[in-house]
Write a protein that binds this DNA or RNA. Sequence first.
RNA 1: CGAGAAGUAGCUUAACUUGGUAGAGCACUUGGUUCGGGACCAAGAGGUUGCGCGUUCAAAUCGCGUCUUCUCGACCA
Length: 474
Amino acid sequence: MKNKSITSRDVDFAKWYTDVVQAAHLATYSNVKGCIVMEPNGYAIWEKMQQVLDHMLKETGHQNVCMPMLIPENLLRKEGELVKGFAPEVAWVTMGGNKELEERMCIRPTSETLFSDYFHEVLKSYRDLPIKYNQWVNVMRWEKETRPFLRGREFLWQEGHTIHETKEEAEQETRNILQLYRKFFEEYLAIPVVTGRKTEKEKFAGAEYTLTIEAMMYNGITLQSGTSHYFGQKFSKAYDIKFLNRENNWDYAYQTSWGVSTRMIGGLIMVHSDDNGLVLPPKIAPVQIAIIPIKQTELVNQKINEIEIALENSTMTYMVDCSEKSAGFKFAEAEVNGIPLRIEVGERDLQEGLITVVRRDTREKRQVKTSDDLLLILQEMLDTMQQDLYIKAKERRDQLTFDAHTFEEVKTIMERQPGFVRAMWCGDEACEAKMKEIRGTKSRCILEDAKPIDDVCVVCGKKAKHLVVWGIQY
RNA sequence: CGAGAAGUAGCUUAACUUGGUAGAGCACUUGGUUCGGGACCAAGAGGUUGCGCGUUCAAAUCGCGUCUUCUCGACCA
């Protein structure tokens, strides 16, 4: 039994994706071009992500702040590379009334400039360092092509901005955050990621280097899912962020920034979900258990009441669907919304002292004795499902990861079925550009600690410098 | 931003070729019967046909413009 309103994933992946977004009531198109309305089911996932990540960030010494949404033009223009990188996507604000009195401003596409200006104001001494701030805000980038969650003109994210006394400490922060993101993806979102360094061409405008986590979607397309940038002293020199060091000399601070966005929701969908709708890893699902009465008799209601009381004293989240819909409708509804477990409570089972628990991902039904420890069983099932989703995603990822030794090989692989292609690269931008001819293949990241698989560049045949993961991106 | 396609009730759509009262299914409301995989019967409500201009006695239908969405490119941490 397949969901009627969802195009099959194997027939048309793009259509399937938007069908799932809408059928699960995550978001709907708004009348503001390129902007979506995040509906309760979608926003709840974001809140859950925020809750977990925010905790992880605070545990590692970060504090939340909030910067203005508007950036004056002169402030934005101080760091040249950043401006060049973002110029085409920046939205400018026009003021009503007497325009001559107003300074031209843009809506933040990212907040390095604001944080830098602030750091310039407050930083005096090495004793003030490190400063590790984060903000949960919306940003605006005037994208030409948009897709719900994956690329929008306005989106929500967290952006961390830190300054440090030494190069080593700032670089350590850049790496630590990358590991924090990796942990969040693997342990909570159940999404395996490849981590590494961006090439010069693909790095953040204005960064010394960019570290990235790259996730593979079910169809083999890559989603850049989070980045952590090391700025060195580039911004601190442009914005004059300096302090008196331990030797009583002026020094420029070493800076980082990093972020993940609502794009993660898109990734979550495209890695785990299926033709019946959304599949959510239990640890990130806003509601973990749906309790469904087959028919609301006295006996059924009484049992549900008992279960509710038990669940109230656990950490599991649940909902009871006591709408007037038929049982089958409620099953389908719980599935399309991606609720990890469903408890079916009906007369027939209860007569035999049973209730039925169903897993969303496998749709496997399990009969549980009412005398058994239900909470323990539910928690076990949630844990198993969490693990299974990760294993399944990893198997899919590994299956679509290939080593290539020649340009022709890369071409054959990408034209047959996109995925991650590991291939050597000489470091020359011309070779990187040449790869784009194959269905827009781009470097995803340089694998810094990996063993080389060959001596020569897959494109030009000259001596290779790096092992690079290549892919087609969203 | 370029090429193509499409906009009719919340959704999917019919009528458009050949201009003449906009019709259905799903969803919704009410009442009743149901309930172990998207129930059934009956009644009801819901439309300035995306928007603007033009042609015409008359426009959902023809023409022009515009906006939005989708697909493919280009662009894009």
